[in-house]
Design a protein around this nucleic acid. Sequence first.
DNA 1: GTTATTGCAAATGATTTGCACAAGG
DNA 2: CCTTGTGCAAATCATTTGCAATAAC
Lengths: 166, 166
Amino acid sequence: MTPEVRERLDTFIKLKGLRNTPQRDAIVDVIFSSDEHFTADDLWEKLRGTDARSSRATLYRTLSLLTEAGLLQEIDLGDDQTTYDPNFLDKPAHNHLVCVDCGKVIEFEDGHLEVLNDCITRRLGFRPVKQSLRIEACCEELRTNGRCLNLIQARLEGKRFPVKKR
Amino acid sequence: MTPEVRERLDTFIKLKGLRNTPQRDAIVDVIFSSDEHFTADDLWEKLRGTDARSSRATLYRTLSLLTEAGLLQEIDLGDDQTTYDPNFLDKPAHNHLVCVDCGKVIEFEDGHLEVLNDCITRRLGFRPVKQSLRIEACCEELRTNGRCLNLIQARLEGKRFPVKKR
DNA sequence: GTTATTGCAAATGATTTGCACAAGG
DNA sequence: CCTTGTGCAAATCATTTGCAATAAC
């Protein structure tokens, strides 16, 4: 966890008159020990390894808190669970490419895209706040090589795209 | 319902060895009597007016069917229900601007955007399939005029953005 | 007659919430 | 102390599903 994050959280906690708890700290530590996006369930699994256990309720409450504090961004990858992105303070946009073959998710940025979207937004008579592009695409690897490691892995885990479980 | 839609559906039904039922027909009629996007619940309400009632189960099953047939596109507007778009055969992309003030949703197209996204996709080593851009923006109307009819309406209906109900 | 379709009610599954108890400050 | 935080179990809520009864073809 960067001091930047720590400070922002402390400020938020003070501002709102909230308190520090070991459960919350443990969750926050795990979240910001990586800059990969994750789901509530991913986080739950990571916490199992730790000795610092907490309930799912607390986990969800902490996720809401961090989102409200502006330290986490909720993103939607098209399945039925919310994905959270911790490392977005440097990234103004959230653009994802999801492979329809293997489910691989690639996060990317593109200056041209942002400029263009800003133009479009203003042209429509609005003021830009946030943007997220979601591209579904086919894995070139599968098309050209006839196989794709991600796909194999995904099948092993029973996680083929689309990942809707309902 | 355009003959184009009718034919495509008939073909699909025949191809899959399915059958024609009055319930399904009624639902399909209501859906394609407009080209506005809608949620399962919107559709349910519209059907109440008709004498052709069906169960929610059939409604959902029909939505899946039409999506599979390529006559409906599922889109995600950021709330917790799926939105369906019937009029997309002419529209290759799904770009939405959602106003964070009043919740108004504007669907738009932009040639530059599509070209750019195709480039980005290929650059990342994929082949483009589908894209959807979601822009959150502020209502200029509210900023400049100090009021926005959509917002007033939305408040009356208790539907302020974000529309998560859970 | 088969086999797909329907309606009902029950199941699902991620997320939220009420409540009594625990614990920061 | 006083309030916020926690864990538990129960509640939500859109959507799905099992099943027996119906209805296409």
